[in-house]
């Protein structure tokens, strides 16, 4: 989430253009021509510094989002209502870990180490998707995250499969292939509650949808006219479809799904616009979005705290594994010498 990184980076004053040599200018023209031809850029190819920086930020923040995204769901593994749901949730959380790893690997090809990226996350310097700073209060939240949050993520991620930076595109293809199960299992969990559940369980689903709807549609990032980096990212083939366009696609797809599920979406202004052949929606509270991005969401401190604790608690395991590897390697050398 994905492309949020691009919209928040302009706020940190990246604006100044460095002085470029004639050679750099020529390299950049060649690079632009490759992008125009629809060519893919590989790790060792020449690329403008700003392209590298933009991608590094986007991919690493995407990776952080996958890893932090395990926390709100991990919370419910031990409380899943049946063994089947527990197995499904475990598989989904394991997928998120895998997605984080694919993405960290892609980001490392840009010349930053895994540890540097983790340090940026743990010290609060790097961001992750704001959506994971909301709490998961009931079991229905698990289904709703699958349906809405993963649904929005898929909408965001499918175009990135055609990103000009090939290692990122390859990671995204793998992720998108696995992500569809996440959305479907979520919707099916909710459908089960809505068709076979008690009144209280149905109310639980509606409550979860009410809480997750607005944060989900904020996942696409600020409106196009307030997204200053979109143009450059589109020029470079990092971003393919604008925030508002993706948001519209998501809303249009979700309205029908909500109807079949039997829930309402918490937006009184949400209605079909015959002329536009699309749904109009009410005003989005962007002050809430920026508040959560800035660190003041309901769970920012809790999530980062849990993440740092997991890393610190695992330090002895990482050290022990290295010590064991060194010992084994030394033993092998002795065996060969003998």
């Amino acid at each position: 989430m994905y492309t949020q990184a691009m919209d928040t980076m302009g706020k940190e004053g990246d604006g100044k253009k460095p002085v470029r040599s004639a050679e750099d200018l020529l390299l950049e023209q060649r690079f632009d021509a490759r992008i125009d031809d629809g060519d893919f850029i590989e790790a060792k190819d020449w690329m403008p510094e700003h392209y590298r920086k933009t991608l590094l930020r986007q991919i690493s923040q995407h990776a952080h989002s996958e890893i932090v995204g395990m926390l709100p769901e991990g919370n419910w593994i031990s409380r899943a209502p049946t063994l089947k749901r527990k197995a499904i949730l475990l598989a989904k959380v394991q997928d998120e870990a895998g997605h984080g790893l694919y993405l960290y690997s892609a980001a490392e090809t840009l010349g930053t180490s895994r540890d540097q990226m983790l340090q940026a996350l743990h010290t609060g310097k790097a961001k992750y998707s704001s959506i994971f700073n909301y709490p998961t209060l009931s079991w229905a939240d698990m289904g709703t995250i699958g349906w809405l949050v993963d649904g929005a993520a898929i909408m965001n991620q499918v175009p990135i499969c055609r990103c000009s930076y090939a290692p990122y595109a390859r990671a995204m293809i793998r992720i998108c292939r696995e992500e569809s199960f996440h959305q479907r299992q979520g919707y099916e969990a909710l459908l089960t509650m809505m068709t076979k559940g008690t009144e209280a369980q149905k109310a639980m689903v509606q409550d979860a949808v009410n809480r997750w709807w607005w944060p989900s549609i904020m996942m696409f990032g600020p409106p196009d006219d307030q997204s200053p980096n979109t143009a450059q990212s589109m020029r470079w083939g990092i971003k393919r479809i604008s925030n508002d366009e993706l948001r519209q696609k998501f809303i249009d797809a979700t309205v029908e799904q909500a109807k079949i599920l039997g829930v309402s979406l918490p937006d009184p202004d949400l209605k079909w616009n015959e002329e536009r052949q699309a749904h109009d929606h009410g005003a989005i509270d962007w002050s809430e979005f920026w508040k959560v991005v800035g660190g003041d969401g309901p769970c920012n401190r809790e999530r980062l705290g849990a993440r740092v604790k997991a890393w610190d608690d695992g330090a002895w395991v990482r050290e022990a594994a290295l010590a064991h590897a060194a010992k084994q390697a030394a033993k092998t050398r002795l065996d060969i010498a003998a």
Partner: peptide, 19 residues
């Protein structure tokens, strides 16, 4: 990168090798 802050976040020397 600011490497002075958190000693727990390892330096490249203690990072597991890449495969």
């Amino acid at each position: 990168m600011d490497n002075t802050k958190e000693p727990t976040s390892a330096t490249p020397a203690t990072e597991w090798p890449l495969w």
